[in-house]
Simulated scan of single mutants.
Amino acid sequence: MAVITRISAQQKNDERFNVFIQKGPKEEFAFSVDADVLIKFSLQKGMEIDEEEWEAIIEEDQYRKAFNKALHYLSFRMRTAHEIEVYLEKKEVPEATIKRVLQKLSEYDFVNDETFARSLVRSRMNTSFKGPGMIRQELKKKGISDRHTEEALNQFSFDEQLEASISFIQKQFSSGKKRSEKEQKQRIAQQLQQKGYMWEVIEMAFQEAKISQSAEDEKEALLAHARKAHHKYKKYTGFEYESRMKKFLYSKGFNSDVISELLNGDEINDL
C-alpha cells in the first residue's frame, strides 16, 4: 500500500500531473497521469493506493496516451484500422491497449474502413488514371478487407473505366514522338494494364479513342529508328545487315512493307 504525498502539474504540459508517494522515510516520484485519469481515479494527497489500483491507473493512462497519439495521427488524413494499428505498434503500445483504442475510435466513427475504402476509390477516380486493379492493391496494403474493397470498387463502373482509359490514351498518344503508331499503342496498352484496367476495357478504349499518326510522322519515326539501327549494324553487309535492320525496325512496330521499301530505296544511303 502506498500513500500519495503530492500531485503537481508538469511544467511543459499542464494537462499531465506527476504523482509522488511516501516510500519509507522519503518521498519519491511514482508515475505521471493525464488530467482525465487523475479525475477518473479521484487521485489526491493522502490517498492510499494498492498494487491492483496502481496497475489500473497505469493501464488507463497508457490507453489515454495511445488514444491521443491515434487522434493526432488521424488529424492529417483519414486512416484505416490497420494503419493506426501499425502506427501504435511502432510506438510500442501494447496489443491490448491498441485493441481498446481501435474499438473507441470505431465507436466515435473516427475510423471506418468501409467509408475509407469508398472515399479512396472516389478520390482515385477523380484525380488519377489508376484502374481497379491498382486501386485494389492500394486498399489491400492499407489493410482493407476484400469485402469492403469490392463494395467500394463497385463505384468504378465499366463506363467510367472506359472514359478514364480513353482520356489516358488521348493524353499519352502524340505525333512527333518518333515512335511508330503501333509501338505507341503497345506502350499505352501496357501502361493501362499496369494501372489495373482489364483488357476488355483497354481494347474498347482504343476503338473509341480514334487515334492515328500521320503518314509524315510515321515516316519520320521510321527514319529515326533506322538511323539508330544503321549505327548499330553498319559493320554488317548484305543479307546480315538487311536481316538485322528488318528485325530491329519490325520490333519497333513498323510493318514489313514499309521496312522493305526503305531498305530498297535511296533513303537508306542517307542514314
Score class of each variant (00 low, 15 high):
residue 31 F to A: 02
residue 61 D to V: 07
residue 48 E to P: 10
residue 41 F to S: 08
residue 48 E to S: 15
residue 53 E to T: 15
residue 55 E to M: 10
residue 33 V to E: 09
residue 57 I to A: 00
residue 31 F to L: 14
residue 43 L to K: 05
residue 30 A to Y: 09
residue 42 S to Q: 15
residue 60 E to Q: 11
residue 39 I to K: 13
residue 63 Y to D: 00
residue 44 Q to G: 02
residue 64 R to T: 02
residue 54 W to P: 11
residue 32 S to C: 09
residue 55 E to L: 09
residue 72 H to S: 08
residue 63 Y to S: 09
residue 72 H to F: 14
residue 32 S to P: 00
residue 34 D to K: 11
residue 32 S to N: 11
residue 40 K to Q: 14
residue 55 E to W: 07
residue 30 A to D: 12
residue 56 A to Q: 12
residue 36 D to F: 13
residue 43 L to E: 06
residue 44 Q to A: 09
residue 38 L to M: 09
residue 46 G to S: 06
residue 62 Q to T: 10
residue 70 A to F: 03
residue 68 N to M: 12
residue 63 Y to L: 12
residue 68 N to V: 09
residue 31 F to M: 14
residue 42 S to C: 13
residue 65 K to W: 13
residue 40 K to E: 10
residue 49 I to A: 06
residue 32 S to T: 11
residue 45 K to S: 09
residue 64 R to D: 01
residue 70 A to I: 02
residue 36 D to Q: 14
residue 41 F to H: 04
residue 68 N to D: 13
residue 60 E to N: 10
residue 52 E to W: 11
residue 49 I to E: 10
residue 53 E to I: 12
residue 51 E to Y: 09
residue 62 Q to C: 01
residue 47 M to Y: 06
residue 50 D to W: 04
residue 59 E to L: 00
residue 62 Q to P: 06
residue 37 V to D: 03
residue 60 E to P: 08
residue 70 A to L: 00
residue 49 I to P: 02
residue 34 D to N: 13
residue 41 F to G: 07
residue 36 D to A: 13
residue 68 N to L: 11
residue 63 Y to P: 03
residue 43 L to S: 03
residue 42 S to H: 14
residue 56 A to T: 06
residue 60 E to W: 05
